[in-house]
C-alpha cells in the first residue's frame, strides 16, 4: 500500500516546490541559479574580455556602439530537497505517520521536477539517511525510506544535524517535527539556514499535544525521557494548558519568521490533501 494515496498523487503530479531565492545548484536543472549559464533566457551584458566565448558576442550592439559586449544567460540548476523527519519517541504514532505522508507527498512533488530528494530521520543522532535521488522513478525508493523511519530514543536535533552529510549545491530543508525538545529552536534553524537557501518548518501537533484526553489525578510520563509529573487535571486546567500550547506555538512561528524560515502548523487531524493543496499553496511552498 502506497504511503500517499494514489488519488492524491495524481493531483500532486502537476505541482512543484516553489523557491523564492536563487542558489547555486550542483547539476543542471530547472531552477534558476545564482550563476550565469547557458539557458535560453537572457540575463545581462558584460564587456568582452579576451578569452570569452565569441559565440556569445552581441553583434547587434557591436554594430550600433562599436564596442564588444558579451551576452549572459540565466543558469538553471537543480536543488536538493531535504526531508528531515524528527523521529524521536515524542513523534511516535499519528505524528510520525502524518509526517511520513506529508514528506512523501512533497517528495513526490519535488521528484516531478529535476530536484533531488534526500531523506533523513533525526532523533538524538542521525538514525536514518537516504542520499539524494532524482526523478519520479525514485518515488518508491523514497517512500520506502520514509516508511523505514521509526521513532526511537530522544531528541537532539543539533547533534543529528551535525551527523547529517553536507549536500552539494543549494537545498531546501523541510523539517517535520513536533518541536518538543529543550534545545532552542533558533540554534536548529540557524544550523539549517547556514546550509540551505530555504527552510520550511512543518510543526506537527497531535490532539494529545493540544488538549490531551485526561482528567483527574494522573501521572504524566514523558515518552522520551520516562520522566514523571503528578498533575490534577480538570476542565479549567485543560483550558489553561491549551492556551499555553497555543502561546508556545505562536512564539515558535514568530521565531521562524524572524529567521526567515517558513512555518506551517499541521495538526494530525487535518486532511493531507487540504494541507498540501490548500495551506501549502496559500503559503507558496508548492505551486
Amino acid at each position: 500500500m502506497s504511503l500517499v494515496p494514489p488519488k492524491l498523487l495524481q493531483k500532486l503530479a502537476r505541482l512543484g516546490l516553489s523557491t523564492r531565492k536563487r542558489a547555486a545548484g550542483a547539476r543542471q536543472g530547472e531552477r534558476r541559479s545564482i550563476r550565469r549559464g547557458q539557458s535560453q533566457e537572457f540575463a545581462d551584458h558584460r564587456q568582452y574580455v579576451p578569452g570569452d566565448d565569441l559565440r556569445f558576442l552581441d553583434w547587434h550592439l557591436y554594430g550600433r556602439l562599436d564596442t564588444l559586449w558579451i551576452k549572459l544567460f540565466e543558469e538553471e540548476e537543480d536543488r536538493v530537497v531535504q526531508l528531515l523527519l524528527d523521529c524521536s519517541e515524542s513523534m511516535e504514532g499519528d505524528k510520525l505517520q502524518f509526517a511520513r505522508q506529508l514528506a512523501g507527498a512533497l517528495a513526490f512533488v519535488a521528484l516531478g521536477r529535476t530536484d533531488r530528494v534526500a531523506v533523513a530521520g533525526l532523533s538524538d543522532g542521525l538514525s536514518h539517511y537516504a542520499p539524494p535521488r532524482r526523478g519520479r522513478a525514485s518515488t518508491n525508493a523514497i517512500f520506502n525510506t520514509l516508511e523505514a523511519v521509526v521513532a526511537s530514543s530522544g531528541t537532539d536535533l543539533g547533534r543529528a544535524l551535525e551527523s547529517y552529510p553536507r549536500q552539494r549545491g543549494a537545498g531546501i530543508a523541510l523539517l517535520f517535527s513536533d518541536l518538543l525538545y529543550e534545545e532552542p529552536l533558533e540554534i536548529v534553524l540557524k544550523r539549517l539556514l547556514s546550509r540551505n537557501s530555504e527552510v520550511h518548518i512543518f510543526h506537527i501537533l497531535s490532539p494529545v499535544d493540544l488538549r490531551p484526553d485526561i482528567y483527574g489525578d494522573v501521572v504524566l510520563v514523558d515518552q522520551e525521557s520516562g520522566e514523571e509529573m503528578h498533575v490534577s487535571v480538570n476542565e479549567r486546567t485543560l483550558d489553561r494548558y491549551e492556551a499555553t500550547v497555543h502561546a508556545w506555538a505562536e512564539e515558535t512561528e514568530a521565531t521562524c519568521r524572524r529567521l526567515g524560515a517558513k512555518y506551517v502548523r499541521v495538526p494530525t487531524t487535518a486532511s493531507l490533501e487540504d494541507v498540501i493543496l490548500r495551506d501549502l499553496r496559500r503559503l507558496g511552498i508548492v505551486s
Partner: peptide, 15 residues
Amino acid sequence: RKKVKVPSLLLWQQF
C-alpha cells in the same frame, strides 16, 4: 495515580 504517556513533559512543565 493512573500513568498517562504524553509525547513530552516540556509543555506541561512550562504550563
